[in-house]
């Protein structure tokens, strides 16, 4: 079947297999490899992207379901800026180590602030429960999100 998905501001149209998952559309068809795959049970959140502005797990969605929708991946988050405030906050607070969970974590964190602009630490922690990180113990990720909340991270 054919889908047209607006990804990071660009319309993309491709003929795809019906069963193609959105994450593979992004990675293998479009070559946007920033979005990672960490599990097969919708548990880890490494594949988190924004669908029409909200965080979703792109491994648990068919590309066909995103037909006509707007998708933002880590590559498109900053727009024309060098870095989105959330990306800057992750760097300044050492919110990443191996980097594998990072794109999904950042997208989830931005989505979180869009729904809750000034969260408490506890709200950040429960807001990120769908994203697993093995390296950081989440400490600095939480610090980064709290810092970003002060710097317009909801953008």
């Amino acid at each position: 079947m054919q889908v047209t998905i607006r990804v990071n501001g660009n319309n993309t149209t491709h003929e795809i297999e019906d069963r193609l998952l959105l994450v593979h559309y992004l990675r293998d068809v479009l070559g946007l490899t920033g979005t990672n795959i960490g599990c097969d049970t919708t548990s880890c959140g490494a594949c988190t992207v924004h669908l029409n502005g909200e965080s979703v797990k792109s491994c648990t969605m068919l590309a066909a379901q995103a037909d006509g929708a707007e998708v933002t991946t880590i590559e498109g988050l900053a727009g024309s800026d060098e870095m989105h405030p959330m990306q800057r906050a992750f760097r300044e607070n050492h919110g990443l180590q191996c980097g594998f969970c990072t794109p999904g974590m950042v997208m989830a964190a931005v989505g979180l602030l869009r729904e809750q602009a000034n969260p408490t630490e506890e709200q950040v922690r429960s807001g990120l429960e769908g994203n697993l990180c093995r390296c950081t113990g989440y400490h600095n990720i939480v610090q980064a999100v709290l810092a970003a909340a002060k710097e317009g991270g909801a953008r």
Partner: peptide, 9 residues
């Protein structure tokens, strides 16, 4: 239910 991403879908 689930986590925020799950609740969005």
């Amino acid at each position: 239910v689930g986590d925020p991403q799950v609740r969005h879908r």
